[in-house]
């Protein structure tokens, strides 16, 4: 499988570049990338689902909201996802489905803490080769 994200060199925190064939896939890949950065994929079951909708006037707000909501599912409720699905309900409204399970430190390997999704240099856009985003996380 083609790598759907890569880490960028960054002075203080954690920056990634995410790729997607479609706009919906870009959002889904961003969600999955965030999960991979926090917890090792191996061992995360696919036994529970969390759904939520996000709406915003532009893609930057939408990307921030989609990721921040998912991050709080982990930080507050302890839910970790293995897979993310994104459905475009309309141009400014997305339905997010996260498939995973409760995080269990005895079974799952924690990699690093992400404290927040920043707006700093946040970028989403469509290029010749598909969709691309740059995201900086506060760690």
């Amino acid at each position: 499988m083609k790598k759907f994200y890569r880490e960028l060199e960054h002075a203080g925190d954690l920056a990634i570049e995410v790729f997607g064939g479609t706009r919906a896939e870009l959002f889904a890949h961003a969600l999955t990338a965030m999960a991979r950065l926090m917890v090792e994929e191996k061992g995360i079951g696919n036994v529970a689902r969390q759904e939520y909708e996000c709406a915003a006037a532009d893609d930057l707000d939408l990307m921030h909201d989609v990721l921040a909501r998912a991050l709080n599912l982990f930080l507050i409720d302890g839910f970790m996802w293995r897979e993310a699905k994104v459905e475009e309900k309309s141009r400014d409204r997305l339905l997010i489905t996260l498939c995973g399970e409760q995080y269990d430190p005895s079974r799952h390997r924690f990699l690093r803490e992400i404290k927040g999704v920043t707006f700093h240099r946040l970028f989403t856009g469509r290029g010749r080769d598909g969709w691309r985003a740059e995201i900086i996380f506060d760690v």
Partner: peptide, 13 residues
Amino acid sequence: HQTCDDYLKVIGR
């Protein structure tokens, strides 16, 4: 952290 994030969104808009 959450307080900052909440208000970046509110005030940014």
